[in-house]
Each structure stands twice: as structure tokens, then as C-alpha cells.
Nucleic acid binder design. Structure first.
Lengths: 237, 237
DNA sequence: GTAATAATTCGTCATTCGTATAAATTCAAG
DNA sequence: CTTGAATTTATACGAATGACGAATTATTAC
């Protein structure tokens, strides 16, 4: 959106020439283009759409408007690019969860189950509705959680385990009648539900014959919280 | 396992020659080898591990012990192979769900929510624990449900929609105080939870610090049913 | 100023991919 | 028997892929 003049010149030459045209010449540019971020942003959307194996480095470079070699320059390999994409926003998300939990605990009175659950869900739900990038990350997240490969597991663990375990601790205090392992198990039920909701609105439309359509972002979250809190508090089987 | 004599001869030549050796000669074999099924089985496991884009036709052919061209002969394209893999077991599964629901309804008394939910979950839960192929299909299923691509959506819809809608109808009768669209929404919460559980036992171990380890297949299902039934019956938000 | 370093594009290489065609062998129908 | 269809391997093709080396230009340090 910024260097429109440069682009225009490039297009002139493209018309005179033949095929593809790159927006920059080789060599270090005068105005630092913050191209690393541009690559990360493009990769986030691309990986969300096609998954790790479904997207080529060339495709990402093209979407970012950048030469393919620059990706190697900043990230070396495709895998490291993926990891950085994931950790970038995952770290923020995990941090946000910690903050909301702190805020709940500082309020004095012991938090209710539905408040704890809401605090857990809120950050990513907001992120998902914050625009294209947030929605893409939600999608990516959902993908990674159905990936059995060792590397994907490590990545998730690294980014999320600490905050999830804190939430389990707080839930355990709010539900003293339940053994901790039951709460851990139910916490992963919860994660399953909301991972699914991060990416599956098309299918929900089908199941409800379009009747869900007008549910707003907040109403949807309210519904999720009600469902999950009831499940979390259920009598043991 | 059968044509061991042929294989031995082939291996002789492999030693004399250089690299790879195929177990069969060109041309129609004497004993029909049921190779189509062997391909489907190998593809099921391969796609579960690597996803559609992560697995090559060559890889599947090798796993099946079959020439690559045979896959084209039976399935034409990679995509059609994937579809057949998915529909084969998906169709059985959907059928099984219909049967269990029929049985519930025929029993005379109105079914309880937890019975309906258990009937829905049981078939795939059994399948998942029936061996390598069942587990692979569960994994595949989980993958497909995080795939945003149009084709994946159509496939799921085609295989499952009818039975899911029947379950929603029956749940609506058991829960007259809830509007149907709430039940549809909660049904997709349910699908999310159990898709996640079909593939994520590694992560659960982490969250519960190994305390889940000794939960048997049946106990795990009981826990899921208790959680989901409570959520399904929750007061509206 | 000159040298080192940072950021960028370009061209290339070996490999792998999905698909396609041809050839070989066996079975079924007449 | 002969012929034609069915099942199988072998080989080839062009396109795409991830990675890499080299060239080019700007900035910073001395």
C-alpha cells in the first residue's frame, strides 16, 4: 500500500517486457521494507489454508511479494518459518490467557467455573474475530491440533502447556469434589470443542439448517461457555 | 505372505541386479491378489499419518507392495483414491449409527440424553479401538474435520449429515425445553470434543501428568458421555 | 574513503510429484 | 484355439518443490 510509485514503474517495465515482474531490484533497499513481517503474515494465511505440506515456499514468497530466497535468508528452512509463524501469535495468546486468569484471581472472591472457562476461551475467540490474520491463526491452530506428527505435538506443548496447567489448577480449586485427573481430562474435552469451533462454522450452518446464522460472536461464546461449564461441573460417571 | 517362492526368485535377481525389486511380474496374476483392498488399506494408514498433501502416490504404492500404475488403474487420481478410502469406512460408520438409534427408539420408553449421546459415539469409539486400521480412520476423520477446503466439507457432509440430523431430532424430543437450533449448535460442540478425543491421547497424557494412563477404553467413553450429556442438558446461557 | 555487513533478487540443481502410456501376462467367451 | 478384456509392472514426462550459491546494492564501522 505504501510504495505505489515503485510498483507503478515496475508495471511499466512489465508491460514492455514479458512475464513476471519483481517490485524490487537486488541489493539492500533504501527504505527498509519490513519484509520479514510481510513474509510471516503471508505464511500465516497460506499455512492456514493449505497446511504445512499443502503450501510451497514459492507460494508464500509470491503472496508476500518477495523473492523466494529471502525466505531462506530470514528463516533458513520451511519448517523454521512455520514454527515462527506459530510461536509468534501463540506466545501472545498464551500470555493473554495468563493475564486474564491473574485478573480473575486478584478479584478477591473465588472465581466461578464459568468465569474460568470464559477467561480461557476469550483471547483466542477475540483473536479469531479480529480480522483475516486472526482467523487464519485460528484455522492454523485447529489444523495443528489434529496433526499427529511428533513435531506438531512438541510445538503445541511448548506454546500452551504452562497456561493450560494453571487453568486446571484453578478449576480444581473451584471443583473440590472432583479428582484432579478428571478435571484434566475434561479440560481436554473443552479444548476439543473450542478448537472445532475455531474453524467449523460452515458445518454448523449445515447442521442447524441456517438457524445459527444470526448468532453473534458474543452469543456464540456464551453458548460455548454454558455448555462447557455444565460439562465441567457434571457428576462423575 | 503367499507367493514366497516367486519372491525368493525375485530376490535372487535383486542381489545379482542392483536396487528395488517388485514382488510380481507384469500381467494378470494367477491367483487374484485382491490388491485393490490392499491399496485402500495402505492408503488409509498413510493418509492418516501424513494427510492428503503429505503423502505421495508412490509412498502408498510402496506401502501396499504394488506398482504405482495400479493405483491409477483402480482409482484414476489421488483424489479419488482418498475419497474411496474415506467413504468406505465412513459409510459403515454412519450405518452403524442409524442402527443403534433405531434400537434405542424401538425399546419403547423415551431414550435419555446420555443414551442418545452414547449411541452416537459408540460406533467410532469401537472402531478406533479395533486395531490399526480403525485407529487410522479415526485419525483421518479428525484431520478432515479441521480441513477448510471445499472438497473436504462436501465429503463430510455427504457421509455424515443424514445420521447427525436424525440424532438432533431425537435429542430435540428428549429436550423439549431447548430450541432446536440450540441442540444443533450443541451437537457440533459434541462433535468437536469427540473428534479431538479420537486423535489426541498424547496430549491428554501431558495435561494430566500421566494420571489418565490407566483409563480404559470404556471408562474414557463413560467420561465423555457424562461431560457431553451435562453440556447438552445445560440451561440456556 | 574503505571494508565489513545486511538485505535483497536471480538463476540453478537434484529430487519428487501426479499423471500418462506401453508392454506383459492371465482369464473368460466364442 | 482365438480373441478380447482384465490386471499387473515398467518406463517416461513435464511440472513443481525445497534448497542453495552467487551477484547486487545499501548501510554501518572504522
Amino acid at each position: 500500500m505504501d510504495s505505489s510509485a515503485t510498483v507503478a514503474v515496475a508495471e511499466d517495465k512489465a508491460v514492455k517486457g514479458e512475464k513476471k515482474k519483481s517490485a524490487r531490484k537486488p541489493g539492500r533497499p533504501k527504505n527498509n521494507g519490513k519484509l520479514k513481517e510481510k513474509i510471516l503474515n503471508a505464511a500465516e494465511i497460506a499455512f492456514a489454508e493449505g497446511g504445512y505440506t499443502g503450501i510451497s515456499v514459492r507460494d508464500i514468497a509470491e503472496r508476500a511479494g518477495v523473492n523466494q530466497g529471502l525466505i531462506r535468508y530470514y528463516f533458513d528452512t520451511k519448517e523454521q518459518l512455520f514454527d515462527e509463524v506459530y510461536k509468534r501469535r501463540g506466545g501472545l495468546l498464551s500470555g493473554h490467557r495468563h493475564v486474564l486468569l491473574d485478573r480473575l484471581l486478584e478479584s478477591g472472591k473465588p472465581p466461578q467455573v464459568k468465569d474460568i472457562i470464559r477467561a480461557y476461551l476469550q483471547p483466542q475467540w477475540d483473536l479469531k474475530h479480529s480480522g483475516e490474520a486472526g482467523a487464519a491463526f485460528a484455522q492454523l491452530q485447529s489444523r495443528l491440533h489434529s496433526e499427529p506428527e511428533e513435531h506438531a505435538l512438541r510445538l503445541r506443548k511448548e506454546v500452551y502447556d504452562a497456561s493450560v496447567k494453571r487453568y486446571i489448577d484453578v478449576l480444581a480449586q473451584a471443583l473440590p469434589q472432583l479428582p484432579r485427573r478428571t478435571i484434566g481430562l475434561r479440560m481436554s474435552f473443552l479444548v476439543g470443542t473450542y478448537m472445532f469451533m475455531l474453524n467449523d462454522l460452515g458445518r454448523i450452518e449445515d447442521l442447524t439448517e441456517g438457524k445459527i446464522h444470526h448468532l453473534s460472536k458474543d452469543e456464540m461464546l456464551d453458548n460455548m461457555v454454558a455448555f462447557l461449564a455444565a460439562g465441567m461441573e457434571a457428576d462423575r460417571p
